[in-house]
Design a protein around this nucleic acid. Structure first.
Length: 288
DNA sequence: CTTTCAGCCTGGGCGC
DNA sequence: TGCGCCCAGGCTGAAA
C-alpha cells in the first residue's frame, strides 16, 4: 500500500498528533515483534519529539532514541485521542477484544483489524494495524539513515544523482524506479504513472535514456509524488492516514489498475504486463 | 555482478 | 453460500 506520498501523509498527521506527548505504555501483541520487547522500558516515560519520513518508513524520535516503522503492504498507524468512548485498551481489559494466535483482533463493523502493537501516551493511543503482518518495527539508539548510494525520491539533488551514478544501469526503467537501493520512495503505482507522464516505455533499458529523457523522468518523479502528497496519497482498498482519512490521488491515475480502459490522452487501451513479478500498466501509443 | 522468483501473510473478489 | 483460485501498494535472500 504505502509508497512515499502515503508515508509522508501518515508522518505529517502523526507529527501533529504525537509531538511532545509522553509515552505511558507500549504493548506488543504480535510475537513477530518481540525483539522490540527488550527496549520497551527504555521508551516509556519519555517524550516523542519528532515524527519524520525516512524513505518509505515512519521515523519516530523519542528523546534520543528512535522507532522506525515500515508499513509494507497493509500496515496502518492510527492515532485515537482519548475520549469518553472506549479505547482499544479498555476493550481489551473488558474482554471485548480477544487474543487469537497472540495477535489482537478487534471486531468493528464485523471486520477484523489486527493490532500488532500500540503506544499509549498522554492524551491518546497510537495503534499499528497490519492484517498481512509484513510491516516491521525497529529500535535504534542512534538516528537511522538511508543506505549508502541511495537517494530519497524528493531529494533536490536527484537530477544530478541520476546523471552521475546511474548511466550504466541496464535494468528496465520500471524495475529501476522500484529499486530501493537506488531511488527510495517510489512504488508500483507511482512508477507506472511517472513513466506514462514522461512518455517512456516501461521496458526500455535505463541506460538507453537520453539526457533529456532522464530529466523528464526526474521532473515527473517530483511532480507525481508532490501532487500525491497534496491529495493525501492513493487509497485502493485500505490506505488510511493517521486520523483514518482516505487519500484522493486514485482519482488522478492515468494508467495504474486501468488495464483495458481508454488512455486518458489518446484513447487507445491501457496494457498490463509483468516486470520483475510486479504489474506494470502503460499506454503503447503514448509511451516510446 | 545481475536478475528472477519464492516466500513472508491475510483478505477481497471472482468464477463456478 | 461456499469453495478454490488469483491478486495485492513491499522487500529479502537464495538460486541461477
Amino acid at each position: 500500500m504505502p509508497e512515499l506520498p502515503e508515508v509522508e501523509t501518515v508522518c505529517r498527521g502523526l507529527q501533529k498528533d504525537l509531538k511532545s506527548r509522553v509515552i505511558n505504555k507500549i504493548i506488543i501483541y504480535d510475537p513477530k515483534l518481540k525483539s522490540l520487547n527488550h527496549h520497551l522500558s527504555s521508551l516509556e516515560n519519555k517524550k516523542i519529539s519528532l515524527v519524520t519520513r525516512l524513505g518509505k518508513q515512519v521515523l519516530i524520535k523519542v528523546d534520543n532514541l528512535y522507532l522506525l516503522i515500515h508499513l509494507r503492504m497493509t500496515g496502518r498507524l492510527i492515532f485515537v485521542k482519548n475520549s469518553k468512548q472506549h479505547s482499544l485498551i479498555d476493550e481489551i481489559q473488558k474482554g471485548e477484544a480477544y487474543l487469537e494466535h497472540k495477535v489482537i483482533r478487534l471486531t468493528q463493523d464485523n471486520k477484523y483489524k489486527h493490532v500488532r502493537f500500540l503506544i499509549n501516551c498522554k492524551g491518546g493511543t497510537l495503534y499499528f494495524f497490519d492484517p498481512r503482518r509484513f510491516g516491521t518495527v525497529e529500535y535504534f539508539d542512534k538516528k537511522p539513515e538511508l543506505a549508502i548510494n541511495s537517494i530519497d525520491a524528493l531529494d533536490e539533488n536527484l537530477n544530478s544523482y541520476l546523471h552521475q551514478n546511474t548511466s550504466k544501469i541496464k535494468q528496465n526503467v520500471k524495475s529501476f524506479l522500484l529499486n530501493q537501493a537506488r531511488i527510495v520512495g517510489i512504488g508500483n503505482i507511482y512508477a507506472s504513472e511517472i513513466l506514462f507522464l514522461a512518455k517512456i516505455h516501461p521496458e526500455r533499458a535505463w541506460s538507453s535514456l537520453s539526457k533529456n529523457e532522464t530529466n523528464l523522468v526526474c521532473r515527473y518523479i517530483k511532480q507525481v509524488l508532490t501532487k500525491a502528497i497534496e491529495k493525501g496519497g492513493t487509497t485502493f482498498s485500505d490506505f488510511q492516514s493517521s486520523n483514518g482519512e482516505t487519500g484522493q490521488y486514485q482519482n488522478e491515475l492515468y494508467v495504474y489498475s486501468r488495464e483495458g480502459e481508454k488512455c486518458r490522452k489518446c484513447e487507445s487501451l491501457i496494457l498490463k504486463i509483468t516486470q520483475g513479478s510486479r504489474s506494470t500498466f502503460y499506454c503503447e501509443k503514448c509511451q516510446k
